[in-house]
Design a protein around this nucleic acid. Structure first.
Lengths: 227, 227
DNA sequence: GGTATTATTTAGGCATTCCTAAAAGCAGTC
DNA sequence: GACTGCTTTTAGGAATGCCTAAATAATACC
């Protein structure tokens, strides 16, 4: 059953369930409602519909988990979304912190044919402008990054791997800071009691709140001593 | 009231009304229903809604005419549609006879910002791949072509200005013939009693049905004698 | 000018997806 | 083990936009 057989609403639910599932395992009604901006009651109703379509496994009061069929569709939607984001940034010059909203709408109406053309024009990219991996056509997706900027100790350096695109305001903040995928950062100091980190970025130092730093994934971590 | 304030359905109605109005003046319920693929009863219902929004003037049993507000929105939708068609053909290599369906979906979710970027990347084009003019941002649109391929006499030559994109099958037929905007044709013979025209196109002769030739607009008509 | 045909509208419904308010289930506390 | 507070579900409803069937208006023909 191809993607286009499902309503935009269903596609959005599945995509969001997939996201939350990656972070937390089972997906509770309230969390899903919050993320989608719908009421919990509405979500319960839609969840039942998804279960009837065999796209999620639903246990009343226990939330949902995607079935293989549901996951397949979720990955197709996410592939659309991230490829489009990449295309908007690269081919049309849309600032990387502003591609999300446009992709959110376009993803639901993109044909497979056009998806392939975009993929080819971009040279088969593997990540979107936020650093998130683009699922392959066959549904393959590498595991998420495990290290966050907030996990680093004073003196450690790392490369930004991915920044969260959930909150547009936070994304704009990241963009202003120059905190984008591929950039190297060094943690100069870490305030105690969960306080902010001071990070050096392009030779400028910034204080970044602990929570904010939790939304930034890093890779290639090295300590000041060299290793 | 910007385009995005209206549902896709409203946008489609206005766009279609505009098209028909250009061809025939006042727009009858049945004609609109036919073109949209909806039942006449549904169209009556929607028409009332459009009238309530001051987008059309509705006289029961007399059909509709766009108000200035309705025309403005119709032109914005058409601008989206044609710019997208052009972009798909030029930047993404979609065959010109296949761009319509994709544009039909994308046009409703294109932001003004992205519209501007696409327009700039294309170098502010004035026509879509079928030869139809792209409305300017201010809503300006040149008058439609008046001469049809079916109007030509034997011995006359002309340049294809525009082909209709209403019927996908006909469009594919045009594409196979090489009958696309910008190409020169010469009418070799015209069968009597409304029979087919024989036209020479890239030095190959084809018999084209009279009705089909009515869907092709031409410009720069010259007679065999030189003028 | 009446009748047949066609065009259009009204009436009544259905599917989707959302909402609020109220009820019911679950979990931790004393 | 009952109470409290939070989560989740049920109940009832609204908006959109489509449908079919039946009624009515317009038109065209003889």
């Amino acid at each position: 059953m191809p993607l286009s057989e499902h309503t935009e609403s269903v596609q959005d639910y599945l995509k969001t369930i997939f996201d939350i599932q990656r972070e937390r395992g089972r997906v509770a009604t309230t969390v899903l409602a919050e993320r989608l901006g719908n009421s919990p009651a509405s979500v319960t109703g839609m969840i039942k519909k998804l279960a009837a379509l065999n796209l999620v496994e639903y246990e009343p009061y226990q939330g949902v988990v995607l079935t293989p069929a549901g996951e397949k569709i979720a990955l197709e939607v996410i592939r659309h979304h991230r490829l489009i984001e990449r295309y908007l940034a690269e081919a049309l010059g849309v600032p990387w912190d502003q591609v999300h909203a446009e992709a959110e709408k376009w993803e639901h109406v993109l044909s497979e044919d056009l998806e392939d053309r975009i993929d080819a024009v971009l040279g088969y990219p593997t990540t979107d402008p936020h650093g998130a991996p683009i699922p392959k056509r066959d549904g393959t997706l590498p595991p998420p990054h495990t290290t966050r900027l907030s996990d680093l100790q004073s003196g450690q350096s790392a490369t930004i791997a991915e920044v969260s695109d959930h909150d547009p305001a936070m994304l704009r903040y990241f963009a202003e800071l120059g905190l984008r995928p591929g950039v190297d950062v060094t943690v100069v100091a870490v305030a105690p009691f969960g306080g902010p980190l001071t990070v050096r970025l392009d030779d400028v130092e910034h204080a970044v709140g602990r929570e904010v730093a939790g939304y930034v994934s890093v890779c290639d971590v090295t300590s000041a001593s060299g290793e």
